[in-house]
Nucleic acid binder design. Sequence first.
DNA 1: AGAATTAGATACAAAACTGTAGCTAATGCT
DNA 2: AGCATTAGCTACAGTTTTGTATCTAATTCT
Lengths: 200, 200
Amino acid sequence: MGDHGARSRRRGDELIKAIHDAVLEEVVEVGVGRLTMDGIGRRAATPRTTLYRRWSDPIEVLLDALYHQHPVEEPTPGAGDLRGDLVKALRLMVDWALSPAGRAVAAILTDPKSAALMSEALFERVFANRGGTFTRTVLQHYADQGRFPAELLTPVVADIGEALVTKRLIDTGAPPTDEDLAAIVDQAILPAIGLGSRHP
Amino acid sequence: MGDHGARSRRRGDELIKAIHDAVLEEVVEVGVGRLTMDGIGRRAATPRTTLYRRWSDPIEVLLDALYHQHPVEEPTPGAGDLRGDLVKALRLMVDWALSPAGRAVAAILTDPKSAALMSEALFERVFANRGGTFTRTVLQHYADQGRFPAELLTPVVADIGEALVTKRLIDTGAPPTDEDLAAIVDQAILPAIGLGSRHP
DNA sequence: AGAATTAGATACAAAACTGTAGCTAATGCT
DNA sequence: AGCATTAGCTACAGTTTTGTATCTAATTCT
């Protein structure tokens, strides 16, 4: 027989996974506004017609891909090392932000069309779990243990670490080193919860 | 005569200003990736051909518009009211971020194509002066006056306010109230420079 | 083995955008 | 008043993207 295809034909979840991966790569490369069914299809090595069977436009594909991303690893506070745990939490956040999914989320947030289409459900999934939970988890743990006054753990304080990491990523583009993250912890987070720069 | 035009014909700076305004409105509405010469021209009520006489593609128009924006108002530290001056500085920042120019900058930063074309000069102009200077100016002023130890005014500390405002704008989309800004000052900035939540 | 799904390959007409060209006429300058 | 500049208008061919339709054939299910 012809054997012109060589690779076996993908179906169902396998194919969908390939398309999801493709759209995330594509958006990082060309931006949300220049996403096309054609471009996604080309990258996933599938014809456009296959895409139209499931989604009605490129942004739907993108939002669907994000919705089905694996959840990010949660920070797990360790053996009493508040400072170290905070640095680790921020490191997790950096890893996510630099992943295709993280970059795609950044692109979506500043794109009028996709931002408008972003469902409540996706926003929850992407945000409540990623945007601001990394250090909050750790801080809550140690506040519960009485390491610092729980009333100091306000929404503002819970956001300090993520906010500074985000700003640094925007400003420099380069991934922060562990020293950078430690500086954020020592100079901004710990003072806000009443622990001086010397870590106990 | 025909009088079919009614409005007098625009030339030079007047026309360019109209085009700059148009591209900023357009990018807020459709996003960077969907900018077109056609769309900009339509909004500025000028034919595409006029645009091509000066710029080679929509992103050039956008970058040029940003380059010619009026600089943002600088915070001017007042009569010893550190806390109040910080709130005012953040208010200035919010105003800028919500302006067409501010939104356009956000859009550009997450767009691969335009980010690549952003010149050193424009980056300086847009960033060094806007991205992170609002609270730094105020803090520097009071550090010089000895109101707090100057060595606490690190790059991280100078970014806290802007970072938290940015995150809030991203998360909620809504403009922060003065109370929100005060919370940022009291709970994050002041502790970082060694001044407890009670303002002196 | 046979039936039902569903991916892959074309093809195609409609729309949008591009870049260029050529003409007309309003504006500013001397 | 006359000249140079430049905005506004129209046209057009080429490209990209869009949706849809149609057919073939690989895979899965019973």
